[in-house]
Computed example of a mutant assay.
Amino acid sequence: MSTTLHPDNADTRRSALAQEGFRFVEGEAMRSLLSSHGSLADWPQFAASWDALEPDTYLASVGLHRRRRHAVFSIADGAITREVDQPHYQSRDYNTLQGGIARWFEPVLPQIAESETLRAVLGFCSDVFGGLAPQVPRWHVELHQFRIEARPGEPGQPTPEGVHRDGVDYVLVLMIDRHNIASGTTTIHAQDGALLGSFTLSRAFDAALVDDARVFHGVTPVVAQDPDAPSHRDVLVVTFRRDSAPAAN
Rank of each mutant, 00 (worst) to 15 (best):
Y94G: 05
I188D: 01
S183K: 06
F124H: 13
I181C: 11
A194K: 02
A120Y: 15
R31T: 15
F129P: 08
W43H: 10
Q98Y: 00
A41P: 00
V136D: 04
Q135T: 12
P110E: 05
Y94H: 14
Q86A: 13
S49I: 03
H189C: 09
E28S: 09
V141L: 02
T220S: 13
A48N: 14
I75H: 05
D127H: 05
E83R: 06
N95G: 08
L33P: 14
S126G: 12
R241L: 10
D8H: 12
S198C: 07
D166T: 13
D8S: 10
D42Y: 11
F205N: 00
P152M: 15
L17D: 02
D8N: 10
D42V: 08
A133N: 12
F105W: 13
V238L: 14
V168Y: 06
A120R: 12
E149T: 11
D206W: 07
R242M: 05
R178A: 13
V210N: 04
S2Q: 09
G167N: 01
V163I: 14
F105C: 06
G197R: 04
L5V: 06
A224F: 03
S115K: 00
W50I: 11
N9R: 07
Q225W: 15
L64E: 09
I112S: 04
V215Y: 10
G153D: 11
R92K: 12
S74V: 09
L17M: 08
H232N: 10
G162E: 01
E142L: 08
S126L: 12
A60V: 04
M30R: 05
Q135P: 00
H217P: 13
L195K: 01
P246Y: 11
T4I: 15
L118G: 02
V72W: 00
L118S: 04
